[in-house]
């Protein structure tokens, strides 16, 4: 199945990726080939097969809801490009 440029644009928007024109052209071609490749799965007979949810077929462990982390905001914010007064800065959201 071949993907259209519109479809790839929609996928890129959902994935929050800005692509150049060249990247779009290449993505249409390569993503179409990947989708063709994984389409092989359609020939597998999976009637009544339970989708695998965990590689060891076990359930996720739960833990008590208690505070274990300490406040290390200042250290973590050293990796942010823009902070002020302990807040992360982003472009204005509300006009």
């Amino acid at each position: 199945m071949s993907l259209s440029k519109d479809q790839v644009q929609h996928i890129a928007m959902l994935a929050r990726l800005k692509l150049s024109e060249d990247e779009y052209a290449e993505s249409v071609e390569k993503l179409s080939r990947i989708v063709d490749f994984v389409d092989q799965l359609s020939r597998a007979d999976t009637v009544g097969v339970i989708p695998m949810a965990h590689p060891l077929d076990t359930a996720q462990r739960l833990r008590p809801d208690v505070v274990v982390e300490t406040d290390e905001r200042d250290r973590y914010q050293e990796n942010a490009a823009a902070v002020s007064d302990g807040l992360y800065l982003v472009p204005k959201v509300i006009e």
Binding site: V38, L41, A44, T46, V49, I50, P51, M52, A53, D57
Partner: peptide
């Protein structure tokens, strides 16, 4: 969903 089913077959 299909892939996770096939994954079960493989396992």
């Amino acid at each position: 969903l299909k892939a996770q089913q096939v994954r079960h077959l493989i396992a």
